[in-house]
Design a protein around this nucleic acid. Structure first.
Lengths: 118, 118
DNA sequence: CCTATATATAGACAGCTGTCAATGGGAAGG
DNA sequence: CCTTCCCATTGACAGCTGTCTATATATAGG
């Protein structure tokens, strides 16, 4: 071993963990990893960027299929994953379901990469 | 289709893409997804948090094995991935290799989740 | 009702990845 | 040298996931 000082293992299990502030607990790292995994796919990133830059801030699935160049079931699959994680919300209006970003959830992930203590 | 207005497909290929500012190109989304994939693993997140909260900002691999509860080859594998992406750098001193976080790279990812125009 | 459209679900499958045991390579210290 | 310690590499394998086709569900309009 290089030194005899032991690295901290236990951590504070706060509400909004950040990666760089203090050692993450296993539970916190699992939750954060699950969230970041949603951003680890190019189709979902492009989906989010399309939602964000849509005129009214919302887009129906049928308008995502062509720009994403994926099949309709695949697009439906991705929005479902994002919705389950709370990153987007869908509202059914008639035959269409309009999805929009939940900015607070995105900000939460952004904050997890902050160097601030809290 | 809900409307006849077409969503933008082509985008500006700038240096530092953000998810929420404008539609991502396929290349940008691929790069960003690759980066976020590194954060999509609990072991790597805990590894980064251990580096960040280390007294001197650096930790050798041997001091990561126990707190991460992973085998030494597994830890070595993860730091290699992080290093290849530029998120950490390692410096060999004697028998040990000391790794530290590259804050600019983390900030780059953080910025990708910003709502700012630039 | 019957059809057309929009979305969701189910099932299948290939590719990726996180993990480990085994091994290799290098540096320090007798 | 020879051993010991640290780290990297290799190979193998199970589990996950992104994708598609096929199908189901639901809503609106004649």
């Amino acid at each position: 071993m290089a030194t005899k000082t032991k690295l901290a293992v236990a951590t504070n299990d706060e509400c909004c963990p950040t990666v760089l502030a203090s050692p993450l607990s296993e539970a916190q790292s699992l939750d954060l990893a699950r969230d970041f995994a949603l951003l680890a796919d190019p189709t979902r990133l492009r989906l989010l960027s399309l939602l964000a830059s849509a005129p009214a801030g919302e887009v129906c699935v049928c308008e995502l299929v062509e720009p994403l160049a994926r099949s309709q079931p695949t697009v439906s699959h991705h929005v479902k994953l994002l919705a389950e994680a709370g990153l987007v919300v869908g509202e059914k209006r008639g035959r269409w379901v309009w999805y929009r970003i939940v900015p607070e959830r995105v900000a939460e992930l952004r904050r997890a990469l902050s160097t601030d203590i809290r």
